[in-house]
């Protein structure tokens, strides 16, 4: 068994605005299928209900994120992804669906800053509206991080978790680190 490692070995950078840190390995499973049919399987696999549009539901080390009208991203500890796929396949047998362990295809970063620091870092890189009235905790936003696709969500403290493809991990990290370096503009009220 090979030793699984993250793309950047836990790289870390910080500036006045926020700290950017590569997160440890995390299990991720993409599930595509008819949302009217997959609810029971999702509950069986990760113990969570179905998220509403653009919502992410979290319970301890598990989460379910809405990615599109027929796609969910399930999060779990790294070693559990294979078991989750097996559970999904069993529960959805006969249905038209797709469940794939994508843990090793992703890079994951944590952006933490005081006040609206993390929000401001993202606003420098994404076309998304990041004002607190539009984007807040509990919502997952898929968008563009400069030139690559990314998705992120915010927890209650205002810290952000961001995922992107592993093949662009260095690019994404350098972008985030660079954006965290500048001083705060202070456009957003502290969230």
């Amino acid at each position: 068994m090979s030793d699984a490692v993250t793309a950047l070995g836990g790289a870390r950078a910080g500036g006045p605005l926020a700290t950017v840190e590569e997160a440890p390995l995390r299990g991720m499973v993409t599930l595509r299928g008819d949302f009217a049919r997959v609810g029971g399987a999702v509950r069986e696999a990760v113990g969570l209900g179905m998220p509403k549009t653009r919502q992410i539901l979290t319970m301890r080390d598990r989460a379910v994120a809405w990615m599109s009208p027929d796609e969910l991203l399930l999060l779990m500890p790294y070693g559990k992804a294979g078991a989750v796929v097996t559970l999904l396949e069993g529960a959805l047998e006969g249905a038209h669906f797709l469940a794939v362990d994508v843990s090793d295809a992703r890079a994951c970063f944590r952006i933490s800053g005081s006040g609206s620091g993390a929000r401001e870092v993202l606003a420098r890189l994404c076309p998304a509206d990041l004002s607190p009235s539009v984007f807040g905790p509990g919502e997952v936003r898929r968008t563009r991080l400069a030139q690559v696709p990314a998705a992120f969500w915010m927890d209650d403290s205002g810290d952000v978790t961001l995922i992107c493809f592993r093949s662009v991990a260095r690019y994404a990290f350098d972008l985030l680190a660079n954006a965290a370096e500048g001083d705060a503009v202070g456009f957003f009220p502290a969230s």
Binding site: R54, P69, A128, D129, R141, R142
Partner: peptide
């Protein structure tokens, strides 16, 4: 119309 986001 699918995710409701105002896309740039």
């Amino acid at each position: 119309p699918y995710c409701g986001i105002q896309c740039d």
